[in-house]
């Protein structure tokens, strides 16, 4: 598995430049354009903190998701369909679990990279209000994996990139917009709120918000952690069975 991670890292050495734009610059622009711009109009703040401080931790969790989506969709599809990278790996003494695990590990590496960068900048903007903010790192990895694993399973099940556009528009974008990143999900219609609670991002947002604001998430936080782990485990099993199905025929 480490050799697979190593392979992706070598690969990343050639492509990281273009990913910086989408995984770091765009969230930063959102922070400035939205957090500062719109925040200026949210005069009352939320739960006693400024809109910017409130939004940034959500945006970090959302960035973690965005980062893994970039790697868990197109590359996975093309490693099966066009570049056949997974098949080359399967001919070596690697098992499907190594191939899948190595790629997921690489995705988590990228999450750590972009979330660390984001945290540093957020700190410079003075939006992190507690040293607990470093807990955002493991939280982001957890929510990243909770999204990455099932999305990899999805990408391994399709044959055309049209289905990726469908996933992104019908699942990823709604999840990013309605998981409490930009406004509290309490104000959502109960049905939508339930949907937001079922999806993983809202829990990541809550947890990282608790961390940067230095609020004790209490027992709820523990349940949210466990729930994200369930997504990770379920997604892993699903993805692994897809990988076996595709690689061993």
């Amino acid at each position: 598995m480490t050799s697979v991670l190593e392979y992706h890292l070598v690969h990343y050495r050639r492509t990281w430049r273009s990913s910086v734009l989408s995984t770091l610059l765009l969230p930063l622009l959102t922070m400035v354009g939205f957090g500062l711009g719109v925040g200026g109009y949210v005069t009352a703040g939320i739960d006693g903190v400024s809109y910017l401080d409130w939004m940034v931790p959500g945006l970090i969790a959302s960035t973690a998701v965005q980062t893994v989506i970039g790697e868990a969709t197109w590359p996975v599809l093309s490693y099966f369909e066009w570049l056949k990278v997974y098949f080359a790996q399967a001919a070596a003494p690697l098992r499907p679990a190594d191939i899948l695990g190595g790629h997921l590990a690489f995705m988590m590496f990228r999450v750590l990279l972009s979330v660390t960068a984001f945290l540093v900048i957020a700190a410079a903007f003075g939006t992190l209000r507690s040293p607990w903010a470093v807990a955002v790192l493991p939280i982001s990895v957890l929510v990243g994996l909770a999204v990455a694993a099932p999305v990899v399973a999805y990408s391994a099940s399709i044959r055309s990139d049209s289905y990726l556009a469908i996933l992104i528009r019908f699942a990823v974008l709604p999840m990013s917009l309605f998981s409490g990143v930009f406004f509290p999900i309490d104000s959502l219609h109960p049905v939508l709120r339930a949907v937001a609670w079922v999806l993983p991002l809202s829990h990541g947002v809550d947890l990282s918000r608790a961390a940067t604001l230095g609020v004790n998430p209490g027992l709820d936080g523990l349940w949210q952690l466990l729930y994200l782990l369930v997504w990770c485990a379920g997604g892993w099993l699903l993805a692994l069975s897809r990988f076996r199905r595709r690689l061993v025929v």
Partner: peptide, 28 residues
């Protein structure tokens, strides 16, 4: 599949409208 993609293209601004316009709008 393309029709679904097209529907998605329509959905995008609607989602933003509800999220930002309505959701954040309630704060503003």
């Amino acid at each position: 599949a393309y029709w679904l993609v097209m529907l998605g293209g329509f959905l995008e601004p609607v989602l933003y409208l509800f999220s930002i316009g309505v959701g954040v709008g309630a704060l503003i």
